[in-house]
Amino acid sequence: MSSTILSHVLFAQISNWKRMGDGLYRGRGRVDLIDLLPLAIVIAVAAIAIAIVVKVRKRNDMTTQCDNPAKLFRELCLAHNLDRASQKLLGRLATALQLSQPAEVFLQPAYFRTDQIPAELRDEEAELQALQERLF
């Protein structure tokens, strides 16, 4: 099988050029599906890669019209150059406060007040205070 594959790849071999179509007629015109498997795998991997690239690009493309609260949250995080930890912390704050629009945390300084911080985030009060300073 490997010789068959190589015979397709090594174009420089003149003798192989002459015999390039020989294999296809092996077995009286019947194609062995197992021979196409590598090609199918390559195509599938490429498609997945393209889909991922498109998805990632679309996720970070803020110029398209949409109605996506999470994307707005990301857009604001990017605008403020927040690192992943800060983004995650703000996201957790929005979840803990049960906000339907996570981006609201960028407009409500009150959410960062000590008495407003949910119990599960008390340990990170200092980080939240720093974020408040940065955002407001």
């Binding site: 803020m62 398209t64 994307k71 707005l72 629009q101 960028f106 407009l107 955002l135």
Partner: peptide, 22 residues
């Protein structure tokens, strides 16, 4: 402040309709 100004700059120009609700 600079932080708030950045937030409103984004909110004023964003094409994300979720902005209106916010």
């Amino acid at each position: 402040t600079t932080g708030l100004a950045t937030t409103f700059e984004i909110l004023a120009a964003s094409r994300n309709d979720a902005t209106n609700t916010v």
